[in-house]
Simulated scan of single mutants.
Amino acid sequence: MNPDLTEEEMRHALFGTAQPEHQVAAPQVQESLLDVVPTTPVVAPLVKKRAAKAFTPRLRVTLRVGNEFEGKMIEVTHEADTLSSLLAEQEAVKAARKKYKYVEFVSVRSM
């Protein structure tokens, strides 16, 4: 390849010779203002759709809690809005620890 090519010669080599396209004039249509009548679109009355109650996954966690070591324990239930039983258990234990010193996990059930 010759490194001394001009830009025009490179364009000619890549794209070929430029041939002028024949332009055909489109017939011009003049619309009179009387033919065009502005109309307002018919608006249907809006019907509000009620949002369906979204299903919220819930798990019920049962715990035994107490404030005395090897003392009286009571059963407490906690409802968690999650599908993960591990997250539900952690959330229930965390909430129970705010009030009780000893927390024992019993079960997780789907509601």
Results as ranks from 00 to 15, higher is better:
Val76Tyr: 06
Val103Leu: 05
Phe55Ser: 09
Lys53Trp: 03
Pro45Ile: 04
Arg60His: 00
Lys99Ser: 13
Thr62Pro: 00
Ile74Lys: 13
Val29Ile: 10
Ala44Thr: 15
Val42Lys: 15
Ser84Lys: 01
Phe69His: 14
Gln28Tyr: 06
Asp35Ser: 12
Ser85Met: 05
Gly71Asp: 08
Gln90Cys: 02
Pro45Ala: 13
Glu104Met: 10
Met73Ile: 06
Tyr102Gly: 05
Asp35Ile: 00
Met111Ala: 08
Lys48Leu: 14
His78Gln: 05
Leu14Cys: 11
Thr39Ile: 12
Ala44Phe: 06
Lys98Val: 09
Leu83Val: 09
Ala25Phe: 02
Val24Ser: 08
Pro3Ser: 11
Gln30Leu: 14
Thr6Phe: 00
Glu21Gly: 02
Glu8Ser: 13
Glu89Asn: 09
Leu83Cys: 06
Pro57Asn: 11
Lys101Thr: 12
Glu31Gly: 05
Thr82Asp: 01
Glu79Lys: 09
Arg60Ser: 03
Glu79Ser: 07
Thr62Lys: 04
Glu75Asn: 11
Pro38Ser: 12
Val37Asp: 04
Ala44Val: 11
Val29Ala: 08
Ala88Asn: 04
Ala18Trp: 13
Ala52Leu: 10
Ala54Leu: 02
Phe105Leu: 01
Arg11Tyr: 11
Lys48Ile: 12
Phe105Gly: 02
Lys98Gly: 00
Ser110Arg: 14
Ala18Leu: 15
Val29Met: 06
Val24Pro: 02
Ser84Tyr: 00
Glu21Trp: 03
Lys98Gln: 11
Pro20Gly: 05
Val47Arg: 07
Arg58Lys: 14
Val65Ala: 09
Glu68Phe: 11
Thr77Arg: 15
Thr56His: 05
Val43Tyr: 10
Glu7Gln: 11
Arg58Cys: 04
Ser85His: 09
Met111Asp: 12
Arg64Ala: 14
Gln19Trp: 06
Ala25Pro: 07
Leu46Asp: 05
Lys49Asn: 05
Ala80Thr: 02
Ala18Asn: 08
Val106Trp: 00
Thr40Glu: 13
Phe55Tyr: 12
Arg58Phe: 00
Ala51Arg: 15
Arg64Tyr: 03
Val106Tyr: 00
Thr6Pro: 00
His22Ser: 10
Val47Gln: 11
Ala92Met: 05
Lys98Asn: 06
Ala95Met: 02
Arg60Gln: 08
Arg11Asn: 15
Glu91His: 00
Ala13Phe: 08
Glu31Phe: 11
Ala96Gly: 06
Ala18Gln: 07
Leu34Tyr: 10
Glu7Tyr: 09
Ala92Pro: 05
Leu86Gly: 09
Leu33Arg: 14
Leu33Phe: 06
Glu79His: 05
Glu79Gly: 00
Arg60Ile: 10
Pro3Ala: 05
Lys99Cys: 03
Phe105Val: 03
Val43Phe: 09
Pro27Lys: 10
Leu46Pro: 06
Thr62Tyr: 01
Ala25His: 04
Val24Thr: 14
Tyr100Arg: 02
Val61Asp: 03
Glu70Ser: 07
Ala92Lys: 07
Ala92Leu: 04
Val103Gly: 08
Met73Pro: 00
Glu9Asp: 08
Met1Ile: 08
Phe69Glu: 15
